[in-house]
Computed example of a mutant assay.
Amino acid sequence: MSVTLHDDVERILLDEQSIHSRLAEMGEAIARDYAEDPPLIVGVLKGAVMVVGDLTRRIDLPIDMDWMAVSSYGSGTKSSGVVRILKDLGADITDRHVLIVEDIIDSGLTLKWLLTNLRSRGPKSVEVATLLRKPDAARVEIDVKYVGFDIPNEFVVGYGLDYAEKYRNLPYVGVLKRSVYED
Score class of each variant (00 low, 15 high):
Ser2Trp: 07
Val3His: 10
Asp7Ser: 13
Arg11Trp: 02
Arg11Asp: 09
Leu13Glu: 03
Asp15Gln: 10
Gln17Leu: 13
Gln17Ile: 12
Ser18Met: 13
His20Trp: 06
Ala24Asn: 11
Met26Asp: 04
Glu28Gln: 14
Ile30Leu: 09
Arg32Ser: 12
Asp33Ala: 12
Ala35Gln: 14
Asp37Lys: 12
Pro38Ile: 09
Pro39Ala: 06
Val42Asn: 03
Val42Cys: 01
Gly43Gln: 08
Gly43Phe: 02
Lys46Asn: 15
Ala48Met: 11
Ala48Asn: 08
Val49Met: 13
Met50Arg: 08
Val51Pro: 00
Asp54Ile: 05
Arg58Ala: 13
Asp66Phe: 13
Ala69Gly: 14
Gly74Ala: 11
Gly74Lys: 10
Ser80Arg: 13
Ser80Ile: 13
Val83Cys: 07
Arg84Cys: 10
Ile85Tyr: 00
Ile85Ser: 07
Lys87Pro: 00
Lys87His: 14
Leu89Ile: 02
Gly90His: 12
Ala91Gln: 14
Ala91Phe: 14
Asp92Tyr: 08
Arg96Pro: 09
His97Trp: 09
Val98Tyr: 04
Leu99Pro: 05
Leu99Arg: 08
Val101Gln: 08
Asp103Arg: 06
Asp106Thr: 03
Ser107Trp: 10
Leu109Ser: 04
Leu109Ile: 08
Leu114Gln: 06
Asn117Ile: 00
Asn117Asp: 15
Arg121Ile: 10
Lys124Tyr: 09
Lys124Gly: 08
Leu132Glu: 04
Leu132Asn: 02
Leu132Pro: 02
Ala137Cys: 09
Ala137Met: 06
Asp143Arg: 10
Val147Gln: 01
Phe149Met: 05
Pro152Asn: 03
Asn153Cys: 03
Glu154Val: 15
Glu154Trp: 07
Val157Gly: 00
Gly158Ala: 10
Gly160Cys: 11
Gly160Glu: 11
Leu161Cys: 02
Asn169Pro: 08
Val173Tyr: 00
Val175Cys: 04
Val175Met: 01
Val175Pro: 03
Leu176Asp: 01
Glu182Pro: 06
Asp183Ser: 15
